[in-house]
Computed example of a mutant assay.
Amino acid sequence: MNPTGTIEVGVTRLPQAAGPAAGPDPTPGAVPAPRLDAAVFTDADAFRAMVSHWNMDELYTVGNLLMSEGERLGAVELVEILRWLFLPDRDATGPDLSDVPEEPQDAPVVKVEFVTDSPYENGVFWAGEEVYLHHANGHVSETEIGPPEGMSDDDPFYAEWEEKVRRYEDLLADYARANPPNEGDHLVVDLATGEFDQSGRWSLA
Rank of each mutant, 00 (worst) to 15 (best):
G5P: 09
L97F: 07
A159I: 08
H139I: 05
G10M: 06
T143P: 00
P119G: 05
V31C: 04
Y158I: 01
S118D: 13
D99K: 03
T61P: 03
A192T: 12
P180M: 08
D155W: 02
G5W: 08
V76G: 06
S98I: 00
G23F: 12
N179S: 08
E195D: 10
T12E: 15
P180F: 06
T6M: 11
H139M: 09
A22R: 14
T143Y: 05
A22N: 12
T27P: 07
S68V: 07
H135N: 03
A44Q: 12
A192G: 10
E8F: 11
N122R: 15
N55L: 09
A178H: 07
V112D: 01
P181W: 00
W84F: 10
D89W: 06
V131H: 05
P181C: 01
A21H: 09
P15L: 14
M56P: 01
D197G: 01
V115T: 14
M151Y: 03
F86C: 02
E80A: 15
V76P: 00
S118F: 04
R72P: 07
D57A: 15
Y60F: 15
E103R: 13
R13A: 13
A44N: 06
L172N: 06
V11Q: 15
N179P: 00
H53W: 10
D91G: 13
P24C: 15
V79I: 12
A159T: 12
D45C: 03
A46G: 05
D170Q: 12
A33I: 07
N64H: 12
S52T: 13
V40I: 14
F196H: 08
D170I: 10
A205K: 02
R167V: 06
G146V: 07
N182C: 06
E163S: 13
G184F: 07
I81E: 06
H135V: 01
G138P: 04
T143Q: 07
A176Q: 03
L78A: 12
V9L: 13
D96S: 03
L171A: 04
